[in-house]
């Protein structure tokens, strides 16, 4: 079946989704994180009544408002792409996948958008108490939006709470609570929102560092940095904890992704985690070469992370592709056989049902049910197709972890010199601080690349490969819209950054003004 598909179109559709998602993810983590910090600033203003805190709150609120608009625009385009480029996906799993997306729009986003208006335009128009309440509701609403989007994404990684309907050939939800409380959804939500708070802290530190270097708005910058460094330090500790939990879930339900993240081709007992390494681009699956041309490993840590036991076995890519009877791992070729049986029997069931042959339909359905968990493998032609791009997954994972290790040290340094009241003299730290927001963005992008590229070739893990999930379009059509979006998003980004830079240059209103 797969050989009839134009793989180029799939790659363009994936590239278009990745482009939109990465643009979207410039704006979203800032929204998710900075709303909590703005709520904090606003609370201090409410308690103290200080005009200085009011101006500080309004300044960060303005930057958030500029950011918010384009986050919404790119998010809507992402949802439309499910219909335009991934219509088979929408048709096959829309009953399940559409539910959290609809809830996000109707429940969380409307809540967030309504209170956003009160927060932004409510100064001196509503009571101080209701205004503060609105700011808090924006933080809660935006994070509730993240809940539902991440529930949808977690379902792609581990499709729980569903049943395949052989009559309609669609997946249908049979347990809403299982979908919502999917452990991957919970670990994704906590990891994503805490790392967003970390990112927002870096954003505030970058801008405030620039003010201190320029000798402008110094008290406001010192206050902003003190709060951001605390939020950043606490959230970065939680990011490490939730990252460990997220990796454990990956190891349990997506072992191929974990093996790609670590460039592990041959499974090991007491497997070590790669501290530093480089992927060998000449490596072919099944040859005698190591997957990494050089590596520094810490023994036992990967086994501990994957199975909570430092001596346990972690399967490598070749164990998962070719099978490992000693560890009861079924190879992909066996799964392909079972998947093709499932597809053949599904076809036989439909024909028998149409002809009114109840006995044949029942027999076919029984065979289908016995093999349905391998349904997606029936669309693959050779075992090696089940392996994601190892180099990109490995490099993205290690970049994310490396940056995630640096950030708490940055927050600690800013906190220490703020405490000592000598931050203004630390020019080296302030200069480094101005670029921290970009490193935060790279860490976030890397995380999503690990999550999405590491899941390939699946749109829905083990059930639906991307080659089947797509719309029947030509590659040229999708390539055209890819470049249209690239130009549109770049113009939007230039517009946003220039408006934001102008606001930063103007700075917060000073009390004496």
């Amino acid at each position: 079946m797969i050989e009839n598909f134009d793989l180029t179109m799939v790659n363009w559709a994936r590239a278009q989704f990745a482009l939109t998602a990465l643009y979207h993810w410039i704006f979203v983590p800032l929204t998710l994180g900075i709303t909590w910090i703005i709520a904090f600033y606003h609370t201090i203003y409410y308690r103290t009544g200080s005009e200085e805190w009011k101006n500080l709150t309004r300044f960060w609120m303005t930057l958030f408002g500029i950011n918010f608009a384009i986050g919404v625009a790119t998010g809507i385009i992402l949802e439309f792409e499910f219909g335009t480029n991934w219509s088979n996906y929408s048709w096959m799993v829309g009953d399940i996948f559409g539910a959290p997306l609809a809830i996000e729009g109707i429940f969380a986003f409307f809540l967030e958008a309504t209170f956003f208006a009160v927060m932004f335009f409510g100064w001196n128009r509503v009571s101080k108490k209701f205004h503060l309440f609105s700011t808090w509701m924006v933080a809660i609403g935006s994070n509730l939006s993240a809940v539902w989007i991440l529930v949808a994404n977690a379902w792609m990684q581990r499709p729980v709470g569903q049943v395949f309907n052989p009559d309609s050939a669609r997946f249908e939800m049979n347990n809403f609570a299982e979908v919502v409380f999917n452990p991957i959804a919970v670990s994704k939500f906590t990891h994503t929102t805490s790392s967003s708070m970390l990112f927002a802290s870096l954003f505030i530190i970058s801008i405030s560092s620039w003010y201190l270097l320029k000798g402008r708005h110094e008290k406001m910058a010192r206050r902003s940095i003190m709060v951001a460094a605390v939020f950043g330090l606490v959230s970065s500790a939680f990011v490490g904890f939730t990252g460990d939990e997220a990796a454990y879930e990956v190891a349990q339900h997506q072992p191929m992704k974990l093996a790609a993240m670590e460039g592990l081709y041959k499974g090991e007992e007491g497997a070590g985690i790669v501290l530093m390494g480089m992927v060998d681009s000449d490596k072919k699956i099944g040859d005698d070469q190591d997957g990494l041309s050089f590596k520094i490993k810490i023994p036992g840590i990967l086994s501990l992370l994957a199975n909570r036991s430092s001596g346990s076995f972690v399967p490598g890519i070749e164990d998962l592709v070719y099978g490992n009877p000693d560890h009861k791992i079924m190879g992909v070729d066996d799964k392909i056989v079972k998947g093709k049986i499932a597809l053949t029997q599904l076809d036989a069931y439909k024909k028998a049902s149409k002809n009114g042959d109840t006995a044949a339909a029942t027999a076919a359905l029984t065979m289908f049910q016995a093999n349905k968990e391998y349904l997606g493998y029936g669309f693959l032609t050779k075992p090696e197709e089940a392996v994601p791009p190892v180099g990109l997954t490995f490099n993205a994972f290690h970049l994310m972890v490396a940056l995630g290790t640096v950030f708490p040290l940055v927050f600690l340094a800013f906190l220490y010199f703020s405490w000592k009241d000598t931050l203004k003299e630390q020019k080296w730290l302030l200069k480094g601080g101005t670029v921290m927001v970009f490193l935060g963005l790279f860490a976030h992008w890397s995380g999503w690349i690990v999550a999405e590229v590491g899941r390939q070739p699946w749109a829905i893990q083990d059930l639906l490969p991307v080659t089947v999930a797509r719309t029947n379009l030509t590659a040229g059509t999708v390539a055209t819209t890819f470049f249209m979006f690239l130009i549109l998003f770049t113009l939007l980004l230039i517009a946003e950054v220039s408006i934001m830079l102008r606001q930063i240059n103007i700075g917060p209103k000073e009390v004496s003004e």
């Binding site: 909590w36 452990p183 805490s194 008290k219 003190m226 959230s235």
Partner: peptide
């Protein structure tokens, strides 16, 4: 684990708030 993670998430926000207020007061930035 789900409940524990979500409770820790709430604790992250509460601890950040309390620590930030305490430090602002200590450094006369409140």
């Amino acid at each position: 684990m789900n409940t524990f993670l979500l409770l820790c998430w709430v604790a992250m926000i509460v601890v950040s708030y309390q620590a930030a207020i305490a430090l602002l007061k200590k450094t006369d930035l409140y």
